[in-house]
């Protein structure tokens, strides 16, 4: 549903109705998250394991290099951080509590 983030109960369509077809991409699912991955650039070797393993499409890549994390869709599963080989044992992705971000 395409609704402004500051919308209140009086502003949204009744009963969760979706009045705009093809709008699933606008429905942000990142709100489910408890932990979020954060990127540590000095440990990143751009292997892109995170991009391969992400069950959503929350790892953004540009020109074959890690670009960032799309927190609108990242659900905080932590697979990227688990799979990250890092540099000399120091991971380039670590999970922190979302509320501490």
């Amino acid at each position: 549903m395409s609704v402004p983030k500051d919308a209140g109960w009086k502003d949204v369509p009744k009963a969760g109705r979706i009045l705009e077809p093809g709008s699933a991409a606008k429905y942000e699912t990142g709100g489910w998250r408890t932990y979020r991955p954060v990127h540590i650039p000095e440990n990143c070797i751009n292997c892109l394991f995170c991009w391969i393993y992400c069950p959503d499409q929350a790892i953004l890549v540009e020109d074959g290099k890690f670009k960032g994390i799309d927190y609108a869709y990242c659900k905080g599963c932590g697979i990227c951080a688990t799979e990250c080989p890092g540099k000399r044992g120091n991971k380039a992705l670590k999970m922190i509590l979302d509320e501490e971000a």
Binding site: V3, W9, V12, K14, A15
Partner: peptide, 11 residues
């Protein structure tokens, strides 16, 4: 969790 409460408030 994100909108159900608002729809129930409307109801």
């Amino acid at each position: 969790q994100d909108w159900n409460f608002e729809h129930k408030r409307q109801q």
